[in-house]
Design a protein around this nucleic acid. Structure first.
Lengths: 156, 156, 156, 156
DNA sequence: TTTT
DNA sequence: TTTT
């Protein structure tokens, strides 16, 4: 069936990058998404939405996104259910991002990145890139589906 | 910020219609949204996603949708937090539907509707409608924004 | 950048399946998408939107969709510009479908399919399938990105 | 039916604000939306997509957006058909924006605004605002649908 | 006709 | 648990 979610918001913290037993990269972060409520005037509401990213995109995200930065996420809503330590069934909603677009350049809390308490999941041996990557972080995940000479030989 | 969700799925049960203290109608139901997992071949995964609908649309939904029927939902993802009876903070994710489109006619479990254990929230005094309403259930919520004579006097 | 379009509508005609010089399958059809206009009451407006589909999905679409059938399309909006026979530059808007979901079963004009004047692009040697394919037509194009044992070894 | 489009791109020029005979404000602009093509490596493709905005939002857009600025648009795809001066039937695709979010602050070509050749459609008598409006430009168009005391009296 |  |  159809399941699509598009969000724009700011990271509440640096992304966390981990690896599954199979060595698959998976990053997670929370997006603060504001919404307007016109009735109770001025009242600002925020949804804190958990995002999960896999594979190559996970590594890009953990390299280029930090706390406070704005991002657009295109993905699908997923409800995961698991048993917690008390044996209770817990439902977790998260958006599995299929595309992520970085929307501002370093206006976020730059220092927050190095403040991360987590083990050095990020590849600090290579110096931090000084600018956005040339290959856009939002590699159209469908692009591979396009035939080599798209415009040239459209049969109509 | 931007927050948009589009889903197609089937109702796991009849919608529940309630009213707030202010007399505002609010309906809720769960949508079973299948997804394909190409790796573990044939494995079918389903996300059960809670939907909330307000006002006039809530009443339409509770009138025309039943368990098993297919629907498209256009809305936004909302994370609600509350304390449960054990004093624990619980996060609930739900999609607030701004538009709902009914996608099949009565192929769902028709009798399930009357099996609802809830108090008679539905208006059973008026006989059930035998066909779809003429006014589409998916009233474009933005349509009011359009000026009266749209095409006629476009200034370009 | 972000570019996403989600539509539900009905096919105005059978899809046309062609092949590029490279042998890539490409199907095209038009979706009639109704919209409500609440002001000029009752007035029904329809947008006729051209859809393009590539590769395996193109063949699925041309096999299972016909004139009159309802479908959901998930894709991106593309503006193509070309010179017509009069040397005029023409802009064409079309939605490149990345996912297509078939929303009703054969209630459309079944016979219209065989009325297609095009060369036999459809595989008529194999008998027409009597039911929906078991593999859903809306193969999540991202599913391959998911790691083999998703739930089992999530590192959080 | 369902018709939703979400775009992120940059304005190719200042928005043009006009008024219908009825005095309804309508703004239009073009969004340059890049896309990646992974096959023909490095090749950058751009779709130039026309956006139309009505009413209050039209005036906000013409006040706060200029050439080069980045914006997110949430709306629907509309196909308008008209006869041109040569009597030819022309199809125009445009996205009717229901929500617009301004995504960067003044990094675009600021001076371009005053370079507009159009008659003074913008209210130049009041000095240009030095910062974003406090009321977000992306007023959720559905917000009015929410009941006054949403969270307080949810009946479940 | 086009934006970074 | 939270971002500007």
């Amino acid at each position: 069936m159809l399941n699509r979610v598009i969000l724009i918001g700011r990271l509440t913290a640096d992304p966390e990058l981990r690896y599954t037993n199979n060595g698959t990269a998976v990053a997670s972060f929370t997006l603060a998404v504001d919404r307007m409520r016109s009735n109770s005037n001025g009242e600002r509401q925020t949804d804190f939405i958990n995002i999960v990213v896999w594979n190559k995109l996970a590594e890009l995200v953990s390299q280029y996104l930090q706390k406070g930065r704005m991002a657009a996420v295109d993905g699908r809503l997923q409800i995961r259910t698991y048993e917690n330590r008390d044996g209770q069934r817990v439902r977790v909603a998260e958006v599995v991002a299929e595309g992520v677009r970085f929307l501002d350049r370093g206006e976020g809390n730059q220092s927050a990145k190095s403040a991360s308490a987590a083990p050095p999941v990020k590849n600090n041996t290579s110096p931090a890139p000084s600018k956005q990557p040339d290959f856009g972080p939002y590699d159209d995940p469908f692009a591979d589906d396009l035939p080599p000479g798209f415009e040239e030989d459209l049969p109509f």
